[in-house]
Amino acid sequence: MPTVSSRLKGHWRQPSVLPGFGLTFGLSLAWLTLIVLIPLATIFLKSAGMGWHDFVAVGFSDRALAAYRLSFGTAAAAGLVNAVFGLLVAWVLVRYAFPGKQVVSALVDLPFALPTAVAGIALTALYAPTGWIGQYLDPLGIKVAFTPLGIIVALVFIGLPFVVRSVEPVLADLGKEVEEASATLGASRFQTFTRVIFPAIGPALLTGFALAFARGVGEYGSVIFISGNMPGKTEIAPLLIVTQLEQYAYDGATAIATVMMLASFAILLLINWLQAASRGRAGA
C-alpha cells in the first residue's frame, strides 16, 4: 500500500481525491495545443522566417500604417464613447427600477449575440445617405457611412456590452454603506459620485474599455460594409490582411497580422499593469 510520502515523490502536483485529472487535463492540453497554440505559432514562425527588412517593408508600409492608425484610432474613440455611455447604462440598470428593465438588460447583450455581418449591413443601411438616419445627417454635412465616423459607430455598437457587463457587478457590489458614510460626512451626491463611487469602479471601467478596445481593433464583419474600404482612408487593418491574402501575398498578411497582435498585446499589458498598480495601492 503506497504511503502518502511515496505517492508525493516524483509528483509535480498534490495528489487529489477526485478522479479524472489525467484524462481531463490531458484532453484539455491536447485540444488547446492542436487548435490554438500550434496555429498561433505559425504566424510567429512565418514572421520570424521573413527577415527583418522584408517584414518592415510590408508590415510598416504607408498603407499599413494608415490602416493601423485607423483601426487603433477608431477603436480607442469608440472605446471612450462606450466608457461614458456604458457607465451610464450600467448605472441605470443597477440603481434604478423602471418598467421593461429586464428587456433593456437583455438588449445590452445584442451586439454579443448578433452575427457581425448582420450588424454590418444593418448599420450601413441606417447611415448611408439614403438610410433612416443618414438622410437627416447628410444635408447637415455629416457623413457617417464610408467615413471613419461610420467605423466608430459600428465599433460603439459591438463594444458596448463589454463595458456594461464589466461595470455592472462592481457597481452592484459596492454596497450602500460607503455612500451613506459619504453623505453623513456632508458630501453632496455629486461629490459622492466623483470622490467615492467613480474611483471604486475605475478599474472595472478600465477593464471594460480594454475589452471593447481589443475587440474593436480586430473587428471585421461589422465594419467592412460601413467603412467603404478606401486604402489609406477607410481601410481597417483586418481588411488589409484579407486583401493581401486575396493577392496571395502571404508574407504581407502575416507581417501585418503580427504587428497588430503585438501592438494589441502591448496595450493590453499596459492596461493590466495599470490596474494591478491601482489594486496594489488600495491594498485590495
Binding site: 454603506e177 460607503v178 451613506e180 458614510a181 459619504s182 453623505a183 453623513t184 460626512l185 456632508g186 458630501a187 453632496s188 470622490r195 467615492v196 474611483p199 471604486a200 475605475g202 491601482s278 495601492r281 488600495a282 491594498g283
Partner: peptide, 29 residues
C-alpha cells in the same frame, strides 16, 4: 438631509473608502 444634521455615523463594517489613504479618509468630511 443627513449631511445637514451634523451627526457623525460609525457603521458596523466601517465603510471606509478603500481607494483613499487613512488620512484622506479622516479628512474627507
Amino acid at each position: 438631509s443627513v449631511g445637514e444634521r451634523g451627526v457623525g455615523f460609525v457603521f458596523q463594517h466601517y465603510a471606509l473608502f478603500r481607494h483613499m489613504t487613512v488620512v484622506e479618509n479622516v479628512a474627507f468630511g
